[in-house]
């Protein structure tokens, strides 16, 4: 009987460990396995990406629809080229959609907001979003402001 209680408590202990791990995965880290594989990639070129990093979210009307996969420098156009993984079920982004780099709050992280255009044709895997708007860089804004003040 002693051995039996011992085994039961060890079983409960191991189970508690598994439950804790699952809780950490689902509740704390918000792990979402369901639509992680089914994505397609679209690209966009930006003049300036500011503080955008890989894994930053891509949103449409504030809803997360994907994440930034990769940021490289386009050698020919001398612009930043951002690759975005968009969830497969979001397949209605028209070819004239625009992408802009936005900031969450005053000091928050930067993310990409996509707004859909009017064309009937949709973006396919590997397509480029042509209409882009760069990140607002605070120093540039202040610089412009000062320059205007001086010229007046």
């Amino acid at each position: 009987m002693r051995m039996r209680i011992l085994e039961i408590s060890v079983g409960a202990f191991v189970l508690a460990g598994v439950v804790a791990l699952v809780g950490l995965a689902l509740n704390v880290s918000g792990l979402n396995l369901s639509n992680s594989d089914n994505t397609y990639t679209v690209y966009a070129r930006f003049e300036n990406i500011g503080g955008l990093t890989p894994r930053a979210k891509v949103t449409m009307s504030g809803v997360a629809i994907g994440e930034v996969a990769d940021i490289t420098l386009d050698r020919d156009m001398l612009m930043a080229r951002v690759a975005m993984n968009i969830h497969g079920n979001v397949d209605f982004l028209s070819v004239d959609s625009s992408a802009s780099i936005l900031t969450a709050g005053l000091l928050g992280e930067q993310y990409i907001g996509i707004s859909v255009g009017a064309e009937d044709e949709n973006l396919k895997d590997g397509a480029y979003i042509e209409d882009t708007q760069s990140a607002l860089v605070l120093e540039e804004l202040i610089g412009k402001f000062l320059f205007n003040e001086v010229s007046e």
């Binding site: 191991v14 460990g17 804790a20 509740n27 704390v28």
Partner: peptide, 12 residues
């Protein structure tokens, strides 16, 4: 590791 996972969850 089991104890550590439980610790983290209870702490959160």
């Amino acid at each position: 590791p089991i104890l550590s996972a439980i610790f983290a969850l209870v702490g959160v």
